[in-house]
Amino acid sequence: MSQFLIKPARKEDCPIILDLIRGLAKYEKLEDQCVATVELLEKSLFSEKPDCYSVIAWELDELGDEIPVGFALYFFNYSTFLSRRGLYLEDLFVVPQFRGKGYGKRIMQFLAKTAVEKGCGRFEWSVLDWNQPAINFYQKIGAVVMPDWRICRMTGESLKSFAK
């Protein structure tokens, strides 16, 4: 296995994160919904009270240069039933040509360790129902795909209209 690192994102990494987000959007066939910008990422990740956090996975080439191969973006939520915070993985993406090397698993382990260190009662995420490779991966690492839960969402005009 090549040398591999996972590091918390820095402000100067936002263009790399944006490229990885665009790669994820392309993979999920949701490019038309991706309106993220470097400026929005900087505000979300590096304000005084960040909305979310990110880590970047790096492979070291033979010269020791860091090549970004994946990322995860997460935030903390709260479980009323557990009366504890949880870590919610919003997105995980490994660049296609770097898949199959165990990098996704190592990112997930990094986040699981973060959840434990932060006293979280849960580590949760969503997966698209058509993404069988991801579902298989998550089940292989011990996750339970919750069959009885559905995500509900309001965005754009429906959110604004309902808020009135």
Rank of each mutant, 00 (worst) to 15 (best):
L82V: 12
P68N: 14
K101D: 05
I141K: 06
G121C: 00
Q139M: 10
E59I: 00
Q132S: 02
K113H: 04
N136T: 07
F76W: 01
V144T: 09
W149F: 03
P96S: 02
F98G: 08
G100V: 09
L60N: 07
V144G: 07
T114F: 08
R99E: 06
R122P: 02
F110T: 10
E62L: 13
F76M: 04
P96M: 03
F137Y: 02
V94G: 08
L82S: 12
R84S: 02
I141T: 12
A134I: 12
W125M: 13
Q109P: 06
N77F: 02
W149C: 02
R99L: 06
G156L: 05
S158Y: 10
D65T: 14
Q109G: 06
G100I: 12
S83D: 01
G102T: 13
F93V: 03
A115N: 07
F71K: 15
V144Q: 05
V95P: 11
C120N: 00
F76N: 10
V127K: 00
A143L: 05
L73E: 13
N131Q: 02
K113A: 12
F98N: 13
A112Q: 12
R84F: 00
G121Y: 00
L87H: 11
L60F: 05
D129Q: 04
A115H: 11
E117Q: 14
D65W: 03
F76V: 01
R106L: 14
F76Q: 09
K118F: 08
N131I: 07
D129I: 06
K113M: 03
D91N: 04
F75K: 09
I135Y: 00
K140D: 14
G102M: 06
V116L: 15
K118I: 05
L128I: 14
Y78I: 01
V94F: 00
P147G: 08
G119H: 10
M108W: 13
R122L: 11
F75A: 12
G156Y: 01
K113R: 07
D129V: 12
S83Y: 00
E90D: 15
F137R: 04
N131L: 08
I135V: 12
F137I: 13
K118Y: 09
R85T: 03
F71L: 15
G119C: 01
Q139V: 12
L111V: 14
M154N: 07
N136W: 03
W125C: 06
C120D: 01
F93S: 00
I67H: 06
I67R: 10
I135T: 07
V116E: 06
F71Y: 05
I151R: 05
S126C: 06
E157W: 00
V116N: 07
Y138C: 11
D65R: 06
L128G: 09
V116K: 10
R150D: 11
I135C: 12
A134W: 11
N77M: 03
A115L: 03
G102H: 05
L111N: 13
C152R: 15
P147E: 15
D129K: 00
L60E: 15
